[in-house]
């Protein structure tokens, strides 16, 4: 397994170089740079601009900038952010953690909802419930996340008007913005945890919807295929009950392709969290990234790119390892 992992990482190096180079070139195609606004301002003297250009390295040709940056990368240094004058790592760490919290919770929701739904609709194939699940799934696949988030926010507000009217209860049942309450700093560790979780519920659900819909559909197909296979007939002939047959035997195999794709799912979910983060003002990757892009704070953008690539690599490794755990046919080859 270890040589395999090493081989995998070596294979990723060219991909990694290609991706960063491409990103660098694209950033150069955009006219101007971080100092644009200063250049246009009559208050800033040309000498100041020149000094800044020099200190940021913006006076050098783009390929020199690229190699310098790659050089610092080898020392595990992501470079400096132009705005705020702090290391890139300091700028991007918090947003990445915040996004991972959101995505982690939605990943849990995704599996917790999609697996039972998929199994249920396979077992009750063509029943009314199965058809309702199908219809809702297509809706979930079709509706854009940012729009769905706004619809849910609206619903939560409407529900408050309702409870205010009839129950004299003037609170939102779920928070609709931010990641923490205003009294977050005064809370205990467990209280903080609960607070974040509470805030994450709605956006995480939104991020998970299309995944839930897709996974339910595919799992249903996988389960139907497995349930008609020979080893299920054997399991029935042993006298096992339906629960054991569905979960212990059929699902155990139907789930294998999903374990294999957890790694690919992770970056997809992070991407999917994007606009939702903006709608609910979640202090995650997307708002910070958009800010950096507008300001042409190029190393911050590249920093996000590198971390996402790393996450992708780690995700793929994790799913490969998990795959070997769930599928003995792979483990013994």
């Amino acid at each position: 397994m270890i040589p395999y992992i090493i081989r995998r990482i070596i294979h990723l190096i060219p991909t990694f170089i290609g991706a960063t180079l491409l990103a660098f070139i694209i950033s150069q195609l955009v006219p101007g740079d971080f100092l644009n606004s200063m250049r246009l301002s009559p208050d800033v003297r040309p000498e100041t601009i020149a000094r800044l250009e020099q200190s940021f390295g913006l006076d050098k040709p783009w390929y020199t900038q690229y190699f310098l940056w790659m050089g610092s990368l080898l020392r595990f240094d992501l470079g400096q952010s132009f705005s705020g004058n702090q290391p890139v790592s300091a700028v991007i760490t918090k947003p990445i953690i915040n996004s991972l919290i959101l995505v982690g919770i939605s990943l849990i929701m995704l599996y917790a909802v999609a697996i039972p739904l998929g199994v249920f609709s396979a077992v009750r194939q063509y029943s009314v419930a199965d058809q309702i699940i199908s219809a809702v799934s297509y809706f979930g696949l079709a509706i854009p996340n940012f729009f769905f988030a706004q619809v849910l926010i609206l619903c939560i507000f409407l529900f408050r008007s309702f409870t205010r009217e009839y129950f004299d209860y003037n609170q939102l049942i779920l928070p609709v913005a931010q990641m923490t309450s205003s009294n977050y700093d005064t809370l205990t560790a467990f209280g903080k945890f609960k607070d974040v979780l509470w805030h994450a519920l709605m956006p995480a659900f939104v991020v998970a919807t299309s995944g839930i819909a897709g996974l339910t559909r595919i799992l249903r197909g996988q389960m139907i295929e497995q349930l008609s296979s020979d080893y299920i007939r054997t399991a029935r002939s042993k006298g096992l009950d339906e629960r054991k047959i569905n979960y212990k035997h059929a699902l155990r195999i139907a789930i294998i392709p999903f374990v294999a794709t957890i790694g690919a799912l992770l970056p997809g979910l992070i991407g999917g969290a994007g606009l939702v983060e903006i709608v609910v003002s979640w202090p995650g990757i997307t708002p910070t990234l958009l800010q950096a892009l507008t300001a042409q704070d190029i190393y911050v953008v590249l920093g996000f790119l590198i971390i996402s690539t790393l996450l992708l690599m780690i995700g793929n490794l994790i799913s490969d390892l998990l795959l070997a755990v769930v599928d003995p046919r792979i483990r013994y080859n």
């Binding site: 020979d230 080893y231 195999i253 599928d327 003995p328 046919r329």
Partner: peptide, 26 residues
């Protein structure tokens, strides 16, 4: 009642030994 009979009083073997066992359990 049938579940208590299957595999206990009446059991069965099939034509396809290659696919009749679940591949992920010993």
């Amino acid at each position: 009642e049938m579940r208590q009979i299957r595999g206990n009083d009446i059991s069965m073997i099939f034509q396809e030994p290659m696919t009749s066992l679940n591949p992920v359990y010993t």
